[in-house]
């Protein structure tokens, strides 16, 4: 290796090393740190006696929205309210008796199964327990 190529090699290596030492901290800085979330396993979602039949509402489950539905027959169901298509929050349509996403017209039945429109997967299920008159929504065991 002659003197010129040695210098070029040395300078290029130095430049790359310098770029790496600048870019690495910058890129690491841009990646948001993981914020630990309080582990929510169960939330109270109001009184069963005050929850009308054939209706639904969004419940805060930690930082995630969950849709709680009371079907025609009076039974409760809880499902993730985040549409599996593109992340919008779904709603219960009393006229259709189904779960609907307004963003792209996706439909799920009350068990969370994707039945029409673009959603590729069913909605994640949650467990509903009645403690006296109080509705408890919990993660599936």
């Amino acid at each position: 290796m002659d003197r010129r190529s040695f210098t070029n090699f040395f300078l290029t290596g130095g430049l790359l090393g310098w770029l790496g030492s600048v870019l690495y901290p910058v890129i690491s800085y841009l990646r948001p740190p993981h914020v630990p979330e309080a582990d929510v396993n169960v939330v109270k979602a109001g009184l069963a006696s005050e929850f009308p039949v054939n209706s639904g509402q969004i419940v805060k489950f930690g930082r995630k929205p969950v849709i709680l539905i009371r079907t025609d027959t009076g039974s409760f169901r809880a499902l993730s309210a985040t549409c599996t298509h593109l992340d919008c929050i779904v709603q219960y349509r009393t006229d259709l008796k189904q779960i609907w996403c307004a963003c792209h017209n996706g439909l799920y039945d009350t068990t969370g199964r994707n039945i029409s429109g673009p959603p590729p997967r069913p909605l994640e299920q949650y467990q509903v327990n009645l403690v006296g008159d109080e509705i408890h929504v919990a993660r599936m065991a």
Partner: peptide
């Protein structure tokens, strides 16, 4: 509202 259903017309 981070906990409201998406309205129609999004």
């Amino acid at each position: 509202d981070l906990f409201a259903s998406a309205p129609e017309g999004i």
